[in-house]
Design a protein around this nucleic acid. Structure first.
Lengths: 217, 217
DNA sequence: GCATTTTAATCAATCGTTTGATTAGTTTTG
DNA sequence: CAAAACTAATCAAACGATTGATTAAAATGC
């Protein structure tokens, strides 16, 4: 019973088996996909016994659901405040682009996995969760666009398509960075490369949309 | 070998078991992914015996490789000629956008599968094939952009990012059409909806890039 | 009648899940 | 306080089902 003086953990070893399973599963799901990952792999990677997966999460899919819920929770929180600020529409848009790029590029693997799940739409529960989380961001983006259009700072545009351009551009960069910059050997796991790609992406999108939305026809 | 007078097929039955396997496998791979599709499913869906898969293609992966090769072959063929035409850079760009949207939206399921494969990058052979096929299109796009910039009709821009925007926007629309137009119940399998989405996407991208690339700073 | 195509049966391997037992820590009880 | 009862966590082993692949025999076409 926890010897005196609180011996927390020994080195950095197994803080929590439950969390270890989540961490290992997320890594593996990102790398090899849901179907491509076996419970035995999760067991090995996490150091937990196979039975613990079902003990804690009921099933392999239960682990997946848990991971997605954890990540998706608090998705819109940081972005929502942007729309409260007393700043111009164009400034709001620029901040949203930066915030969106930051989040997506902070965990490219997970974003890839999310998109695989969305494109497969096998597990309806997950599909709807992802869809809802995304639609939160879309509503925010749309509001910024329509507000800007109403006060005359943005010209009229196909806002749905504008949103598709913002999200699509960032997703495209995350999924195929080599395509974007084939002349270098860029690696999204390298923090330096990641920052460079993010800066380029943000600068491009901000420039693109500023020019597009504020140019008099 | 193909008896005289070409007795094609009897009713609509088994024209070719080999082709039936390819068709069934492509459908299933698109719907449930590569790992999520079993050889027995392919066998059932195609009407061919399980052993025929290995007989004709050596393995399950062999079927997959065959499908990808068939689809990828002739990828750049239709687009290459565009760059030969004696038309303005902006006109070339508009045509490429239309051609690209047409191809992607002509088979959304396959395009989704291709992107899943690209984002998983499990099978290196496939990964490289897809990458090479895409990079063909990218080179064409980049050439159009730089040509336009050299003759002064386009302003300087981050061309790699511009390309990411074009491809990313279209991919985003294909993968999540509901996100793009949640107020309607659009369906990419419905030819009418598909045409409408394609027209909207093309119009948006052409407008966006025309404004962006031809606006004096 | 020979080569090609197709079949049913079977293979070892792996899948996700469940089991019964064991450990250690906590609570309850007398 | 200590014996008894209970609880959550963990384990090795095994479950039945399914996986991709292979076999050897049968059917087919020429």
């Amino acid at each position: 019973m926890i010897s005196f003086a609180a011996s927390k953990e020994m080195k950095t070893e197994k803080i929590d088996k439950r969390q270890a399973i989540i961490d290992a599963a997320e890594k593996l799901f990102c790398e090899t996909g849901y179907e491509g990952t076996s419970t035995r792999q999760i067991s090995n990677e996490s150091g937990a016994n196979m039975a613990m997966i079902n003990y804690y999460f009921g099933s392999k899919e239960g682990v997946f659901v848990e991971i997605m819920n954890n990540r998706i929770a608090g998705f819109g929180s940081q972005l929502k405040i942007i729309n409260e600020d007393k700043i111009s529409a164009i400034e709001k848009l620029n901040r949203v682009i930066d915030g969106y790029a930051t989040r997506i590029l902070s965990n490219p693997s997970f974003h890839k996995m999310m998109h695989r799940e969305l494109s497969l739409s096998q597990r309806p529960e997950m599909y709807n969760k992802i869809k809802d989380a995304m639609s939160l961001n879309m509503q925010l983006l749309e509001k910024i666009l329509t507000d800007g259009q109403e006060d005359g700072s943005f010209k009229q545009a196909d806002n749905r398509m504008v949103i598709a351009t913002i999200m699509g551009t960032l997703t495209n960069i995350v999924i195929s960075p080599h395509k974007v910059m084939p002349e270098f050997d860029l690696d999204l796991n390298n923090p330096k490369d990641k920052k460079m790609i993010k800066d380029k992406a943000v600068a491009h999108l901000q420039d693109l949309l500023t020019v597009y939305l504020t140019t008099k026809k």
